[in-house]
Simulated assay, not measured.
Amino acid sequence: MDETNRRELPRVVVDPPLDGRRRVTIDGRDVGVAVAPDEVALMMRRAGVPADRIALDDPDLVEWQGGGRDDWLAAPPD
């Protein structure tokens, strides 16, 4: 991705996993809690990122804190 395209896309931060969930912020705005990578992608689409530009493994777009896109703790039983 070139520098011009990076500036056009929002910055996505996915917090460390906690109780099977991960808080997601886009450009510093809290957009919710995800329990799987596909939910992060959905939040990105809702924030205006074109589907063909969503790359969950692109560190210039998504910052995974406390583990990568495949690191999710199991939710506690009800």
Rank of each mutant, 00 (worst) to 15 (best):
Gly66His: 12
Asp70Gln: 14
Val40Ala: 03
Glu3Trp: 11
Ala36Leu: 02
Val35Trp: 00
Pro37Ile: 01
Ala74Leu: 15
Asp15Arg: 14
Glu3Tyr: 08
Pro37Gln: 04
Val14Gly: 06
Gly28Pro: 13
Asp27Tyr: 12
Leu56Asp: 03
Leu61Gln: 14
Met44Gly: 08
Leu42Pro: 00
Val24Glu: 03
Gly67Met: 01
Leu18Gly: 06
Asp57Val: 00
Leu18Tyr: 06
Thr4Arg: 07
Ala36Phe: 02
Val31Met: 10
Asp71Tyr: 07
Asp60Tyr: 04
Trp72Glu: 02
Thr25Val: 14
Leu73Phe: 05
Asp19Ser: 15
Asp19Phe: 08
Arg46Lys: 11
Arg69Leu: 12
Pro16Thr: 05
Leu73His: 11
Leu9Lys: 05
Arg23Trp: 11
Met44Gln: 11
Trp72Ala: 07
Arg7Trp: 03
Ala55Gln: 03
Met43His: 01
Asp60Gly: 14
Arg29Ser: 12
Asp52Ile: 06
Val13Arg: 15
Val62Pro: 08
Gly48Val: 05
Pro59Gln: 12
Glu39Val: 04
Ala51Glu: 10
Gly48Pro: 01
Ala51Lys: 12
Leu56Trp: 00
Arg53Thr: 01
Arg22Glu: 07
Glu8Gly: 10
Gly67Glu: 03
Trp72Tyr: 04
Val40His: 06
Val31Cys: 13
Ala74Ser: 13
Pro77Thr: 12
Arg22Ala: 10
Met1Trp: 07
Leu9Cys: 02
Gly67His: 09
Arg69Asp: 08
Arg11Met: 15
Arg53Val: 01
Pro17Asn: 05
Gly66Asp: 12
Val49Phe: 06
Asp52Ala: 13
Glu63Leu: 09
Val31Pro: 11
Asp27Trp: 11
Met1Tyr: 03
Val24Arg: 11
Gly68Asp: 09
Glu63Pro: 00
Leu56Ala: 01
Ala47Gly: 06
Leu61Phe: 13
Ala47Val: 11
Asp27Cys: 09
Pro77Trp: 04
Asp27Arg: 13
Asp27Thr: 13
Glu3Pro: 11
Arg46His: 05
Val24Asn: 03
Arg21Leu: 08
Pro10Ala: 08
Met43Ala: 11
Pro17Thr: 13
Asp57Gly: 05
Met44Cys: 15
Ala55Arg: 14
Pro16Trp: 03
Asp70Gly: 03
Gly48Cys: 09
Val14Ser: 08
Val24His: 04
Ala41Gln: 01
Arg22Lys: 09
Met43Lys: 02
Met1Glu: 06
Arg46Thr: 10
Ala34Leu: 04
Asp70Asn: 09
Ala41Pro: 02
Pro50Thr: 06
Glu39Asn: 04
Val13Tyr: 05
Asp38Ala: 07
Arg22Ile: 11
Pro50His: 10
Asp57Ala: 15
Gly28Thr: 07
Pro10Gln: 07
Asp38Thr: 04
Gly48Glu: 05
Thr4Met: 10
Ala34Tyr: 02
Arg69Lys: 13
Glu8Leu: 15
Pro59Asn: 14
Pro50Cys: 10
Asp15Gly: 04
Gly68Glu: 08
Ile54Leu: 01
Gly68Leu: 07
Arg29Glu: 10
Val49His: 04
Asp38Pro: 01
Leu18Pro: 00
Pro16Glu: 13
Arg29Met: 12
Arg29Leu: 13
Arg11Asp: 12
Arg6Cys: 08
Trp64Ile: 09
Val33Thr: 07
Asp38Gln: 14
Gly48Lys: 03
Asp27Gly: 10
Gly67Pro: 02
Arg45Glu: 09
Glu63Ser: 12
